[in-house]
Design a binder for these strands. Structure first.
Length: 376
RNA sequence: GGUGGGGUGGCCGAGUGGCUAAUGGCAGCAGACUGUAAAUCUGCCGCGCUUUGCGCUACGUAGGUUCGAAUCCUACCCCCACCA
């Protein structure tokens, strides 16, 4: 039920197939984020038509609202949301990082002050497993301790060691919960900040506790410079098993996907596609475009002439700009659809290039056209 | 015709002698966003320049008081309400 077939490698880049209870995922692949059990703004059919093979949900947010008991009573996340393809739930570990100031970390777990009503909520490794098991996604993530990219070595070490100790508890509780034959797998998360030796220690600790059906790389793209992230990713490769998919959590932008794939990453997720889409920022093959910008006022051109998404097939930049200026929700949705399709297609193209043994050339040519700070 | 209120930067609207090129909001312009506390946030927003500063023009119009006026006085023009 949980397997990964590696079809080809090209340098460090890999093309494979991840098989999960709700279907297969051709990698490399981008996974849209659906925090509250919905990819913000989009109908599941629209998400499906972007080519998305798997989407995320979030433990912390779904625990606060509507509560995992509700989701479970309604048949689990798949049935509740009607998304019938694979799903992965993040553990709430990222909220330990992003809700700094609203939480207190202890060895037992993390106490959050709910951003919704101020109530105190505790998430422990065990409860993170219980919540995710009740939600019922194909993949549950270990509850981890994420530290900022500029964290000191001491803090990064504390985060990675705690994440390993919590992993033992996650693994144990998850095994108990799935002893009934529940089809859900647990993936561990590598921490260690920007320190290569700490990353090695994290991997070693994780592999000791294996085997795993997938391994995630956490704590990147949290404030560190891109070259540092690249260096850390490269350093991981010699220690990572090749027959297990690697998931780079929270990344990223189009150039990050290519750089990650070039360094052996198989799976990505990122909120930027939808958040930036809602904010009117679109990715195109030549770079970022702010659709609210005045020059698009009379443009009949699509966001990206090379894009096959539903938005680009049908709507002009002028119309999209108008929708944003008028604060019509359709605009937010259309650019979100475009951005998601853009990343998913990038994964598809990278896969084909890897299978054809020409990934490096593809990546080089693609990045040469792409201006991350804005299309010319 | 009378009485009262009012005319402020693209719009709305604060401001009643110096701290005012003038609070706010809107509109506009530009930027940010990476396991979602985000359909959010930030900056610019009279004109010109050698732009951390300088010059010019500006609070209905004209004149006056004052060292100094969007703020006080006079006249005029216009708008609104009510009364004839």
């Amino acid at each position: 039920m949980f397997s990964f077939d590696l079809h080809a490698t090209d340098g460090l880049a890999r093309a494979g197939t991840l098989t999960l209870p709700h279907g297969a995922v051709q990698t490399p692949a981008f996974m849209p984020v659906g925090t509250h059990g919905t990819v913000r703004g989009l109908h599941p059919e629209e998400v499906r038509r972007t080519g998305a093979q798997i989407i995320l949900g979030n433990t912390y947010h779904l625990h606060l609202r509507p509560g995992e008991a509700v989701v479970q009573a309604l048949g689990g996340l798949h049935r509740f949301t009607t998304w019938d393809r694979p799903m992965l739930t993040d553990s709430g570990g990222f909220q330990v990082f992003s809700l700094e100031g609203l939480r207190k970390i202890a060895e037992e777990g993390v106490e959050f002050v709910s951003h919704l009503d101020g109530s105190r909520r505790t998430i422990t490794p065990e409860s993170a497993m219980e919540i995710q098991w009740a939600l019922g996604a194909d993949i549950a993530m270990a509850f981890d301790h994420v530290v900022p990219g500029q964290a000191t070595r001491a803090l990064a070490e504390e985060g990675l060691e705690r994440t390993l100790r919590w992993l033992d508890r996650c693994k144990q509780r998850h095994a108990e919960l799935t002893a009934d034959g529940s089809l859900q797998t647990l993936w561990p998360i590598i921490q260690g900040g920007t320190h290569d030796d700490l990353r090695q220690r994290s991997i070693a600790g994780i592999l000791e506790r294996g085997p795993w059906t997938g391994i995630a790389i956490g704590g990147l793209s949290v404030g560190e410079p891109k070259p540092v992230m690249h260096r850390v990713l490269e350093g991981l490769n010699p220690a990572l098993p090749t027959d297990v998919p690697r998931y780079l959590m929270g990344v990223g932008f189009p150039d990050d996907l290519l750089e990650g794939i070039a360094r052996g990453v198989d799976l990505f997720d990122c909120v930027a596609a939808t958040r930036n889409g809602r904010h009117g920022s679109a990715w195109t093959s030549t770079g970022k475009v702010n659709i609210r910008a005045a020059p698009h006022r009379l443009s009949e051109a699509p966001l990206d002439a090379d894009c096959d998404c539903e938005t680009c097939q049908r709507f002009s930049r002028a119309y999209l700009r108008h929708l944003f200026m008028a604060e019509e929700m359709l605009g937010l949705r259309l650019v979100s659809i475009h951005n998601i399709r853009f990343l998913i297609r990038l994964g598809e193209q990278a896969r084909l290039a890897i299978l054809a043994g020409r990934f490096d050339r593809f990546r080089h040519d693609w990045l040469a056209r792409y201006h991350p700070r804005g299309a010319p």
